[in-house]
Structure formats: structure tokens, C-alpha cells
Amino acid sequence: MHSLIASPFLEQHVLVRPGARGGLLLPEANYQELLASGPDAAVPSWLSDTAAGQWPELDMTGRALGDVVLVRAPSPWGYGRASWEINMNCNLKCKQCYLGIKVNSGMPRKDKLRCLGIMAEAGVLWLQITGGEPTLDRDFMAAYRHAYKLGMMITVSTNATLLWRENLLRMFKECPPYRVTVSMYGAAKASYDELTQHQGGWDLFVQGMNAARREKLPLRMSVIVTEDNAHEEQAMVDLCKSWGVEHNVFTNMTPTIYGGGEVLTAQSKDHLRMRKPFGGCNAGHTFFHTDPHGLVSICKIGRDDQISLPSEGIQGLARLGSIADRLMLRTGGCTGCQLSGSCTVCRPLAKHYQEAKAPLEMYCQHGMKR
């Protein structure tokens, strides 16, 4: 199994190590040398020295290149990142979940693995596997291992309630993730179980976090603040600090992907924050999202005009850039807005809020007190 990945990434070339946060830029000439070398060639001295400086625990002296380095071929498609919902099923029923109704459906395993191959062919180096709860999917481990073998740096987004499973922990040790991002829904049993609507959810969360910390998984916490747990915001942050886990705090709720407003009742009014002005993004151009059925969209929010990877293959991605440009145009109630230059949400997200008939104060400058 490879210890390093040498890969194109957008307009550069990088050297990265699964399970490690840091990486190195590779000069074009060095990347081309690795690309031209066969797997039986010796690791060049410049690579051994460079890797030892970045990752002292890695000794590649005298080893065959193919034993330690996966060299990814260039891709003409220009994508560097992607996210993938392997499922929409979940063992929790969080009141604020933007996915709405949980459905246990998706592709057969062979199509999942084929879609991952297409993502790699498109140039995807950084892959986020999410759900639903991804570790609940029966094909999660097979898909994860396949993505790893293809040379992807994998982030798993999870609620941590299954991270105590020995088979998962063994796989993560053999095939280290780049990051495991855990959603945190409370600092105590009562608030956690209330928000997730799962009695015993807190106990599973703590069990999973204890196992993940014991195995030194690369954790990052997403602290979710809602009406049910707002009184515990500082306690959640303090718990992250006591665990030695970096964290981000999220306070603004969004409608469901179907434009449903029922989840907005979870919003803590005292924690509704003004977002920074939206300055554009690379959705659809260097990044894309894939749902459980292999339908590609520009991102998790803008899911209009999806492209089927199983039926269209990689050629379908040729339409994604024009779809992205069209979805970002100001339409509907935003047409001609004089404040659009400092709008705090992208057009696809604004459309969801409008469909959900959300109060303007949740997403639009016109509803904010000045």
C-alpha cells in the first residue's frame, strides 16, 4: 500500500501522505520524472530526502518507487475536489438536518466503485465521503478502500456513533483518512438525545469519540448550535478543547435540499449570525458533488440539472461548468437587487430559502436590522 501520493492538483503538482495534514508542492520536472519512472525503479534520492524532511517517520531509502509512492496521471478535466453522499440513511433523526427525509436507497456496489473510478479519472484528489451516516452503508468499507487505492485523500463526515467498531478502526489504521469530521449535537445526554431524537445517541457518540481518540484519528469537530442545545454552546467548545480536538462552530440553519422549511424551527434566534459576503466559489468548475444514485451536481446545495455518472460516464461532466454559471445568476426575487454585490449567500442557497418561505433575516440583507 502506498505511503505517498504524487498527483496533479488543479494547476500544480503535490506530494501528500494519507493520514497527514501537511504536504509539498512538486516542481513540474520532478513530477514528470516520477510519472515516467516504472514501479520497479528506485526511489530517487531527492524524493527520499524531501519526504524525510516532511515526514521523519518515513524512510524510503533503497526502496522501489511503486512500493511507496502512488503517482497519479494528469487529467484533462481539471477537478481537484469532490463530495459524495454514499447514502441518505442515518441512525439519528436530527431536527435541523438539511437532507430532510432519510431514504435507504442508492447504487449497487459495482456502480459505486465505478463512480469512484470516474472521479479519480476527473482528477479528484480530495474526496469527502458523507451521508446520511456514511459508516452505516453496507458498502462503505469497500468504497473507502477503493477510493484509497485510487489515490484519494479521504475525509469522512460522520456523527461518530459507529466509530467504536473494530472493523472500521482496523481499516482506518491500514488506510489512514485525511480527516474525520464529526458533528457534535450537545454536551450532555439530555440535549444530544433531544436534538437527534435518538435515546442513547449520546452514549454511542461518546463511545465512538473515545475509540477515535484512542486510535488517534485525525479528528475535527463541527459544533452544531440549535434551539435545543444553545445553552451548551460553550460547554461543547470546552469539551472539544478537553479532548484536544480542533473545532468549528455552526449556528445558521438552512432549509432542506428540497426547499423545505420545517428544519428552520431548529434555529436559535440568538445565534443567527450575519454571514460574510459571498465572493464566489469553484462549484461545478473544480469541485462537484455526487448523490447516492451517482447524480452529479455543482455542490450539495445547487442540485438542479444533475448529471448521471453511471449512465453518461465522465463525458457528462463537460456540461457541469455551464450549469454552474447558470445556477449562480440572480433570478426570481433576486433579479435586479441593488445589494447583490454584498449578498451573503449564493444564488442556489437563496433559492432554497425562498422556496422554504424563510424569514428574510435568515439569509437576506433586506431582512437584517441596520
Rank of each mutant, 00 (worst) to 15 (best):
T196A: 03
S311E: 15
S183F: 06
C90H: 09
Y178I: 00
T61N: 14
G279D: 07
G78I: 02
Q267M: 04
T290R: 07
M171N: 03
V69N: 09
H366L: 13
S45E: 14
E215I: 00
Q128C: 11
C90M: 06
W202L: 00
N210L: 11
Q207E: 15
M153N: 13
M221S: 12
G279L: 13
L25C: 07
T181Q: 15
Y79I: 10
R179V: 04
L35D: 07
G106N: 09
T50R: 14
R275C: 07
L127P: 11
M153D: 14
T130M: 14
Q306C: 07
G123T: 06
R303A: 01
G151W: 08
W46D: 11
G132C: 01
T196S: 02
R326V: 08
C343G: 08
E57S: 12
L329C: 09
L169S: 03
S183R: 05
L360K: 12
I129Q: 08
R370Y: 10
L116R: 13
L58C: 02
L92K: 04
D203T: 13
V249I: 15
A82I: 12
D139L: 08
H366S: 07
W164C: 07
G336P: 10
K173A: 15
D139K: 03
I101G: 05
P177I: 04
A211P: 08
V71W: 00
L125C: 01
Q354S: 06
R109F: 02
L349K: 10
E11L: 11
L127T: 08
L327V: 05
F172H: 04
E57D: 12
E215A: 15
W77S: 06
L26P: 01
M107K: 12
K216C: 11
G151P: 00
R114G: 02
Y353E: 03
N30D: 13
E194D: 13
I154R: 07
G66C: 08
A356P: 10
P18F: 00
L217S: 02
C364A: 01
V14G: 00
E174H: 07
A20N: 06
G313L: 06
P56I: 04
F287N: 06
S45A: 15
M209I: 13
L35E: 12
A147G: 15
D59H: 06
D137Q: 05
A266L: 07
L24H: 11
C94Q: 05
V237P: 07
M1H: 08
E215S: 06
S7R: 06
C337M: 12
S322M: 04
E11N: 14
D228F: 09
R319W: 05
R109I: 11
S242F: 00
D291P: 02
L10A: 04
M107P: 06
V249W: 03
I323V: 04
C94I: 03
E215F: 06
A211R: 11
E215M: 03
S183T: 12
P39Y: 02
Q96L: 09
I224W: 06
D228N: 05
L329V: 12
L10D: 01
E11D: 14
L47Y: 09
T344A: 08
T344Y: 03
G294F: 03
Q12H: 12
Y148F: 15
C346K: 05
